[in-house]
Each structure stands twice: as C-alpha cells, then as structure tokens.
Simulated assay, not measured.
Amino acid sequence: MASTRDVEMSRVDEDRETFLPPPAQQRRSTETNYPPALVATVVAFYFIISLAVVFLNKFILSSSEYKFPYPLFVTWFQLLAALGLLVAWAYLGQYKKLFSIIPPYEFDFNIAKRVAPLTVVYVLMLAFNNLCLQYVEVTFYQVARSLSIHFSILFTYIILKKKTSTAAIGACAIVFLGFVIGSYGEINFSWEGLLYGVGSSAFVALYGIYVQKSLAIVDNNQWRLLHYNTTLAILILLPMVVLSGELTEIMNNVQFLDEFGFWLLMTVTAATGFGINIAMFLQVKYTSALTNTISGTAKACVQTMLAAVIFKNPISVTNGIGILLALFGSGYYGYIRYKERVSR
C-alpha cells in the first residue's frame, strides 16, 4: 500500500512498505494541472496521516501509558481493523460515489493461492517494520530502514534482470554512508532494532517486486489485490502471534485489556494505517511523480524533527550527519529515478 510511483521510486517513501502500491501504469502520460490549493490539501493530508502511522505505532509499542510491546499482535489487530474498514468502504461505494474507488469485497480461493507468496512477504515486512519501531528511536527509524533502496536494486537485478544506472547507484552510496555514520552515532543504539530495520528493508524491496508480479492476477486492480493481501495476512499472522508467545503474555501480563481507552488508541492507529491508502490514492491522482518524491523525502525530514521534539530523542552530531546523509541520498535517488523515467 504505497503510491503509484514505480516500485523502485516508492523506496524513498517512508511508509510505503506498509501499504500496497497501485500499478505505475495507471498514471496518465500527461499530468493534469490541478488547482494549487487542491494539491496542497492532498499533500498536507498525506503528511498528517503518514506521520500519524509512525508516531501512533511508536506510542503504542513503547511510549504510552498503555505501553504494549507486542508488535506481532499490534500488526495483526491493525490488519483486522483495516479489513473491516476496507469492506465497509467498499459497501458504501455501492451507494455513494465518494466511496466508489474501492470495489466490492471479493475472495476467490484460486486467486488467493496465487497471491499467497506476496502475502508471506507482506506479513514479514510488516512484522519486521513494527519490531524495528519498537527497538529504535523514531529519529533513527529512517536510517535503520534506509537500505530498502539497496535491496531493491539487488533484487531487481537478480529477479527481474534489470540494471540500475551509475547515478542511482551513486545516490545509494550516499544512503549507505548515512546508514553507517548514523548507526555509529546513535546514542540509544540497539542491535535488535538495526537488524529488524535491515530485515524490513529487504522485505520492502521484495514486496515491491512481488506486487509488480501479482497485479496481473487481479487485472492490475490494486484494491482487489488489497482485499486478498489483507485477508490472507490476517490468516497467516495469527499463528505467528500464538507461536511467538505474545498472546499468552498478553493474557497473563496486560492489565488494561478491559479499558476503552486502550482499544480506542489501537483502533485509531489502525484507522490511520488504512487511511494512508486513501492519502496515497489522492496524492497520486492529484499530484505529479516529482511531487510524490519531494513529498516523501520532506515527510521523512519532518518526521525526524518531530520525533526529536515529541519523544525527546537525543541526537549526537555524528548521528545527525548520518540522518541527513540518508535523507539526502534517498531524496536524490528518487529524483534520479524520476528524471530517468521522464526522459524515456
């Protein structure tokens, strides 16, 4: 669930790994000039909803009065809530044009079997993502997961046999340098968080490639794919929650399961996760590919600054340099890929 930039371009967007990218070919060959106020509103909505996804997840996992360090269960609950919202939105779409972007819910077992490999990658991506967020500060979150670009290039070459330009590889070198320097300078460094971040990056890259391969199964309709992916992810992740011991620990150790405030926080967080689908759809429809690239990079910068203020995350000089390099390299990579596409 991310923007309709092509899969490699979507690597520069922070939250794209949690959300399904629509097919790149849906973008019109000629961009429509929409009113600046509309474009600004759409970008602002994307900023707010995507920042909320990261901060609310961090808040639940390690910072709130309802501290709930069970990332697999949190992910499973969010998927369950997202499926409910998806079905409700699709139902309303049959009667209200405003909601008509999502087709009626469907689940065909034969199609589901073909989508299943994508869902396995999707589940692992979500799990590693929330595990990373649990162990690292939000200021370091961007750096810990910045290698998704590198894995994308690697897997694209291995699986799709596509080469990457020298300029794009140069941008990746800047990101990697930022990753190393930022990791070295991180004050609250966590090997677990770093490893989960690298794992998340790898599955983000694989997910993008598998989405490209899977869209044809559902006639290149990203919303139909979302139906199958979300449903299968719920079924696959539930045994992982049980086998990990999280469910037992929750039942034995958590004292606030009967509190309305806790479930409200969990539901709001899940709703923002679903909302990013709508935000991405609107941003792709009403803005250009270049605007998407700039927006994603700017959002990552704002996210880092807000994290330092809200969570009081300490940032050393070395860590700050690493963060800036990773952000600059990611943005530069996105710009290069954009220029390469428009010049074809």
Rank of each mutant, 00 (worst) to 15 (best):
L126H: 11
K299T: 10
A308H: 06
A24M: 10
G170N: 06
S10E: 13
C172H: 07
D15T: 15
K312Y: 08
N229F: 00
N57I: 11
P117E: 01
I181G: 04
T269H: 14
V211W: 01
P314Y: 03
S330P: 03
F155H: 03
L247T: 09
A271R: 11
N33Y: 12
T291E: 13
Q142E: 08
L325H: 03
D15V: 15
V180D: 06
F68G: 01
S244L: 03
Y333G: 04
L131V: 10
D13Y: 14
A298K: 06
Y135W: 07
C301P: 02
T139M: 04
M305A: 15
Y122D: 02
M240N: 05
K339C: 09
T75F: 09
M125W: 02
P71I: 03
N319W: 11
K113I: 09
F311A: 03
M305P: 07
V54C: 03
F281E: 14
S148T: 14
A298S: 12
K96A: 14
F73D: 01
A173S: 12
S63Y: 09
G170Y: 08
I187S: 13
L126C: 11
A307H: 06
S63N: 10
L79N: 09
L238R: 02
F260P: 06
C301K: 07
T75V: 12
Y122V: 01
E246V: 02
F203E: 00
V302Y: 07
R344Q: 15
D13M: 15
Y105F: 14
A326V: 05
S148Y: 10
S288I: 02
M251A: 15
L306S: 05
V342D: 01
F73W: 04
F140D: 01
E65H: 04
L118P: 00
Q283K: 09
G170H: 05
Q134R: 10
R114L: 11
K96C: 13
I60G: 06
P104V: 07
L226K: 10
T75H: 07
L51F: 02
S190E: 00
F73N: 01
L85E: 06
L131K: 12
S214A: 05
Q283P: 01
E31L: 08
Y141L: 01
N57D: 13
